[in-house]
């Protein structure tokens, strides 16, 4: 299965692999992971270029979330390489280190700090010292304040500034989480099902938000919603049973007979 992907990305021979690596922000090669005999990922390989917006689709159990877990250091792969900016080996690092490298992750289920205000949620995500004592003696600077206010506007929550995050609607929590990712100033954003449970207008707003975010960073979006993926208007990778089934523009992969079989066969 992964052969197709390799051919499509044109990385089948040595020199090109190297050049591909040199240009990638995320390089996943031959990653496999097994949970109690169940192969969640099977020799998964794909690349994301700097500044690229990429959608990853696939049926349930295709390994999308496990892939995210591996990139962000939550799960260790059994075999394979995961490189950030072509040289940093992510498989040896933990979540916090990876986050500090500039990889942000949004969970499938919106996860914000419910007992904090929207403002404090953004403050906590604000890039800067993560050390214990830095945090203990930290005082809010004007620059940080301005950044937070700007982000509040970006995620359309400026009027909810002092609201407890617990009291936000589901869609607002999704946005707040995206806002927190922005505050981290990541170079690579991994977004897991950002529009699950959103209304149509919210979905549209979110697509717009992600496209604008992708202007100055790489974004990988995992999504089920085909309309939303079409709205994103980007390259699509189809996962199936832990490996890449097809890759390309949405209308291109939709014509692929194997993709049709996987989706309709279910």
């Amino acid at each position: 299965m992964s052969e197709a992907a390799v051919i499509e990305t044109g990385a089948s021979d040595e020199p090109q692999v190297k050049s591909a690596r040199a240009e990638t922000i995320l390089y996943v090669d031959g990653v496999s992971v097994t949970f109690d005999g169940f192969r969640a990922l099977n020799n998964l390989s794909f690349y994301v270029e700097p500044g690229e917006l990429r959608a990853i689709i696939g049926p349930n159990g295709a390994g999308k979330t496990t892939m995210m877990d591996i990139i962000t250091g939550k799960t260790r792969p059994d075999t394979g390489d995961v490189l950030f900016k072509s040289e940093i080996d992510l498989t040896k690092m933990d979540e916090a280190e990876i986050a500090n490298l500039g990889i942000g992750r949004k969970f499938q289920k919106p996860t914000v700090f419910e007992s904090h205000t929207v403002f404090d949620n953004l403050l906590l995500a604000c890039s800067g010292g993560r050390g214990v004592f830095q945090a203990l003696f930290h005082r809010l600077s004007d620059a940080e304040k301005i950044r937070i206010e700007k982000t509040l506007i970006t995620i359309m929550l400026e009027d909810k500034r002092d609201e407890m995050a617990a009291n936000l609607s589901h869609g607002q929590k999704q946005w707040l989480e995206i806002g927190m990712l922005l505050m981290q100033e990541p170079e690579l954003l991994l977004v897991d099902e950002p529009v699950a449970g959103m209304t149509d207008s919210e979905t549209e707003e979110t697509a717009k938000l992600l496209r604008s975010i992708a202007k100055d960073r790489s974004v990988v979006v995992v999504e089920h919603d085909m309309e939303f993926v079409r709205d994103l208007d980007c390259k699509v990778t189809v996962l199936h049973e832990g490996s890449v089934l097809a890759e390309g523009r949405l209308d291109h992969v939709q014509k692929d007979p194997r993709v049709i079989e996987v989706y309709l066969g279910r």
């Binding site: 916090a96 986050a99 500090n100 942000g104 996860t111 700090f113 419910e114 007992s115 981290q184």
Partner: peptide, 15 residues
């Protein structure tokens, strides 16, 4: 407090 409420989110935020 953030750790109390959502520990893994805190990790992914870089703490």
């Amino acid at each position: 407090i953030a750790i109390r409420d959502a520990e893994s989110r805190v990790r992914f935020t870089g703490y």
